[in-house]
Design a protein around this nucleic acid. Structure first.
Ligand code: ZN
Ligand code: ZN
Ligand code: ZN
Ligand code: ZN
Lengths: 164, 164
DNA sequence: TTGCCAATTGTTATAATATAACATTTGCAA
DNA sequence: TTGCAAATGTTATATTATAACAATTGGCAA
């Protein structure tokens, strides 16, 4: 039986996204309380901007929106907030896109595996223990000790496949 | 039984790297003859520079070396050559490093899985069908059709682990 | 409370990575 | 041999990210 955990599914097109955002921010607040980390208003705002949709967001798009709200926002403003959010596990970087996406299970350690739809641009995150274990196992056969895995899968999500 | 194919192993520290380079260029030449692609002197030279070692190489490091040999080398010179070499499957990009590494089995379609040693910086490439199949399978359970997989594993290679 | 310290944020500048756009040259073939 | 497409040259600019130092904030010990 697969140890598959869907952290962020591909959402229904009809879904109420405001709920996604609210849940994500709420979980981040809770995690910060538990850990003694500080979810400042800037960091919370950047987290909200990452969660504007289920598509990965570019750092400079976040910056553009921040600038409309805060005088003096600059690249370090955004990158430092993203650094914090990534360290806490609230946000992940999609390396193949140089873009950032919210984590549906904030604070679970390590990142999972990302499914990236090349048509609609949305991303789902899963955390499949079998995948991680198989990769670590095969690496170990070569004497390699796996510490961090970057797994990004490009393809077509169910909705986009059906719409063909 | 695992369908594991080691495309580029972690080399012995004592190995004769000139041979790696020669083999890689030779295979690329052969593949180009077969396909009717043109391995021009510029493209060949960039391939050699990527193969200076088993560590991923930055585009601008290649550019610096090219400039010492060719007047007028500029970023597009390097990026266009890298585009060609990647399309032909002679070189892969390591997304998590923004760097490029030679493929040990030039022309095998698609890229495999990369093991990146955080200590010595060297990279091994494997092409494990079980890993690819498991990921495609788990994605499909969510309705997602996998087309391309980016798999980069950070950790410690055998030599570096032993040297601790 | 007050003043101190570390964390956070502001600010300016620059580094690092990559592409656009158009001109010129090259290699091949009709 | 001349005409065309591919390759390369050239200049400029876009995109992504970090360095370095100053100012502010927020909690906490005296
Ligand atoms: Zn949503
Ligand atoms: Zn889609
Ligand atoms: Zn070698
Ligand atoms: Zn190593």
């Amino acid at each position: 039986m697969p140890r598959q955990n869907v952290l962020s599914p591909f959402p229904q097109s009809s879904h109420v996204h405001a709920r996604c955002l609210k849940v994500a921010v709420g979980k981040a607040e809770q995690a910060c309380r538990t850990r003694g980390a500080r979810l400042t208003s800037l960091r919370r705002r950047v987290l909200e901007l990452v969660w504007r949709s289920h598509e990965p967001v570019k750092a400079y798009d976040i910056l553009d929106r921040l600038r409309a709200e805060r005088r003096g926002a600059a690249p370090p403003t955004v990158y430092r907030a993203l650094d914090f959010l990534r360290e806490e596990g609230f946000v992940h970087k999609i390396e193949s896109l140089n873009a950032y996406v919210g984590c549906g299970e904030p604070g679970h350690l390590g990142s999972g595996q990302f499914l990236i739809c090349r048509h609609c641009g949305e991303v789902a995150e899963i955390d499949d223990g079998d995948i991680a274990a198989l990769i670590a196992d095969r690496a170990r056969q070569l004497g390699f000790a796996s510490e961090r895995q970057t797994i990004e899968v490009d393809g077509l999500c169910g909705d986009c496949r059906a719409a063909r």
